[in-house]
Design a protein around this nucleic acid. Structure first.
Lengths: 199, 199
DNA sequence: TCTTATAACGGACAACTGTCCGTTTAATTA
DNA sequence: TAATTAAACGGACAGTTGTCCGTTATAAGA
């Protein structure tokens, strides 16, 4: 059976959308720019935009794609460089990268977080490579931390997921503001939390 | 100076809104009901509705008010009854109550979570009594857990906040489904995580 | 009780979201 | 190269959000 490859106009429009959104977000910020405005500015139909991206959060998540690749590479490098350090330290290292990412890409992340309603949805953050990768790496480190424990322990996947959720932009910026901490102070407290290990 | 008391019609409308929203949510679910529909059904103007509630999430949060009071009382009772148990056990007890609440009130919580955009906003979950109460109680228990530690430790407020954030409905239901765990199994894993204490 | 100031009301409106459906266009096949 | 076919397009539309502003009703004071 022959596989029809993606039509040229479809590909061009996808690139045009990302380009246009990037420019509009740079000029006005993410939140104030509407999907209508993106379509209008790009000179394409509303439906063409929605056919590619289910909602603005979906679009924002795709705009984080390259950043996500870069982040995953950096984390991989970090883990290799520090392979002989304690697992808890490497874990807090990943958390540090994650916090930097939130600070860097706050607007896009907040948008994609707020539109994340339906499970198994296009544009669900929990389906993104960045989330899956980080959960996996954190899970491995947590498994290493609790590894030599005979009594039944918690599921490292759940712990990793919990750590990532606790770093959702909404919650992160709230506590940061409420406590009046700097980014480095938050990192430091998370780092100390990672030092915890079973009684 | 004289304090004008709240006008009668304003009070009546507030009750009418809550009553109407309750009925509509019961019949159709939370997500499918629009603010327009609530106003129309209640027989009041759109602006009257928005004057009382900044958005649907704000309304949902208010609809959780009584439930929140009940929950706080239950947690208080629990803490008194178990005052002689280890702090980590009481902590996982609170988490248990919290998880039950998520399961009970998923729809309202998801709605209020997804509309929580601006900090210091009416209808921000982090301003709600339920959040503040739980964070305070968890923070006290965490302080107790790490209390007799001479080296600098993490801020219990941050840890408490992190635990609550990790239990946001979106994240909770995602991991529950992905792992195929029952509610009790999630509680069990959280309980084991709470057993952790400093190296 | 009547007047008055003002809080609250609500219809109408502008803008946004997301979808439908008839039309166009690119890739495949002859 | 022409015909075919299905993917992709985009204007238009219905429904929703959130606000504005002229009108109404209520509580306080005379």
């Amino acid at each position: 059976m022959s596989v029809r490859r993606e039509r040229r106009d479809a590909l061009e429009n996808r690139q045009l959308i990302l380009q246009t959104a990037h420019e509009l977000f740079n000029e006005y910020g993410v939140q104030p720019v509407s999907m209508h405005q993106i379509a209008k500015t790009a000179g394409i139909g509303q439906a063409t935009l929605y056919r590619k991206y289910a909602h603005k959060g979906d679009l924002c998540l795709d705009m984080l794609h390259d950043y996500g690749i870069k982040l995953m590479n950096e984390i991989n490098d970090y883990l290799v460089r520090n392979r002989d350090n304690p697992a808890s330290e490497r874990l807090s290292g990943i958390v540090g990268f994650w916090i930097d990412a939130i600070e860097d890409k706050a607007e896009l992340l907040i948008e994609s977080e707020s539109k994340m309603k339906c499970e198994n949805d296009r544009g669900n953050f929990f389906q993104s490579p960045m989330y899956r990768f980080s959960k996996e790496k954190m899970s491995e480190l947590l498994a290493e931390i609790v590894g030599d424990n005979q009594q039944p322990s918690f599921d490292p996947d759940i712990a990793a997921h919990a750590i990532i959720c606790s770093l959702s932009p909404g919650g992160y910026f709230h506590i940061k503001q409420e406590k009046g901490y700097t980014t480095e102070q938050i990192k430091e407290h998370y780092s100390r939390m990672c030092k915890f290990s079973p009684q």
